[in-house]
Design a protein around this nucleic acid. Structure first.
Lengths: 244, 244
DNA sequence: GCATTAGATATGTCAGACGTTTAATTGTCT
DNA sequence: AGACAATTAAACGTCTGACATATCTAATGC
């Protein structure tokens, strides 16, 4: 764990990298306590604020946690899937909004991944996940629902579908793809008719999952993907006609 | 953008969150310059080191970049897919190693996602991606290749397969799933026979992609998934027999 | 007119100090 | 001896002030 003292800039980044590499390589196991800030400052021959900046970088990635008090300090954090969800969603959302990713591209990716989950979800679905899917589908039919609330419920439905696969790695990867779509979906105004059609597809998907019919689930997901693309294209076409 | 002055702890985390929310909401567009550290210190009524810790947290997530000098400062960073790859891989790798995710679970997720890409790759593959796949498959047959180099080439092959889908969102999501598997794959010792079988499957996959035969590509990927699981199970069984 | 230089601005870093939290130790009383 | 209270020590969290360094702007000199 060494840094380059000749490059006077970005000392905190170098220190953060050194510690991060030690964590990734396994040299620093989970719950291991790092030396105190004062000790590290001496080790790296920098000041304590510089060490602290490095530690904050690691804390931002949930790689360490800090405790105050006599037995406190910085500890290697066990990175949990739940903690990683948030970062994954934030990053995915920003990637889409900052890189002019088209609705079509994001939608294609999302449904491709979701359809990958469907066979696993069909074979392993629990009563719990099915109940969530049914409940969300039911919520989506309520009359007073705003478009935003409809989208949020849509996300919840699809997350339940993904979680039903019982594979935390899949759930983690899909969380980004599904949640990051929400800002894009919010540009769509869902009419009563389109909502009915979507909910009908949701219900068909839930039925197929309950019946453990992977083929039917896949077909309905494909139909939902196509219909979502269609809705988005209508919105885009409308906007262009207004402009012209 | 306000913080809670009554909670005296974690001021830098609160400030980071305030700025992060502003970026995500779009209130701070890409390349927008944040106020100087001194100005923000005054705005939030904290000291400059506290502001700096907040900025370092955001820099760790590639949300901002800093420039020194007269016209320098902190700028909202355009998050690029290439930048996000690294974070995604780091996080995925740590998630697998710190949460006792079984080889079977990780492998299942990886191949499920990869098979989701295959149809798109088959229809859109470029000569470039095909050439990479062929080159890696060829490299994997070289006699002196270490197991690690074999795994690295395997990753390169599969990334080319995924990139062939021409969807940056898919490539981003898959990067984590594919690369994070590498440490787990490294526990396997690849015999000459198993290498031959894997390369044969790789060649079959490349052939199917070239022929734009999505069904065949999917079938060969499924076979590869099954064979990879078989190899891992053998390793696990051997270890257990040595112990018993 | 162009190159050079001085100034201004902002980040990067350092040193020292104080406050706060937390746990362990010590001391006292029953 | 044991239980409770007070003290102490360690460590993080924050502040102040200062200096170093990078970079752009503008004034200066030839």
């Amino acid at each position: 764990m060494k840094i380059d003292p000749h490059n006077p800039a970005d000392l905190s980044a170098q220190i953060a990298k050194a510690i991060r590499d030690a964590i990734i390589s396994g040299a620093l196991p989970v719950d291991e306590r790092l030396p105190s800030e004062a000790e590290m400052a001496e080790q790296f021959d920098v000041s304590r604020p510089t060490v602290r900046e490095a530690l904050k970088r690691l804390a931002a990635q949930s790689l360490i946690r800090t405790q105050r008090g006599a037995t406190g300090g910085a500890f290697v954090n066990r990175l949990r899937f739940e903690d990683a969800y948030g970062q994954q969603i934030t990053t995915s959302t920003l990637l889409l909004s900052m890189n002019d990713v088209s609705f079509a591209t994001a939608c294609e990716a999302r449904y491709a991944l979701e359809r990958a989950c469907a066979p696993l979800s069909a074979s392993r679905r629990s009563a719990d996940h099915l109940a969530t899917m049914r409940a969300e589908a039911h919520r989506q039919l309520q009359p007073g629902l705003t478009d935003e609330a409809f989208c949020a419920s849509d996300v919840a439905f699809h997350r339940a579908l993904v979680d039903a696969a019982g594979n935390p790695v899949l759930s983690y990867q899909l969380a980004g793809a599904v949640e990051a779509m929400q800002p894009l979906m919010n540009m769509i105004t869902f009419s009563a008719r389109s909502r009915e059609k979507i909910v009908a597809l949701h219900t068909s998907i839930a039925d197929a999952i309950e019946a453990q019919d992977a083929g039917a689930a896949d077909a309905h997901l494909a139909a939902l993907a196509a219909y979502t693309q269609e809705l988005a294209q209508n919105v885009i076409a409308e906007r262009q006609s207004k402009r012209g």
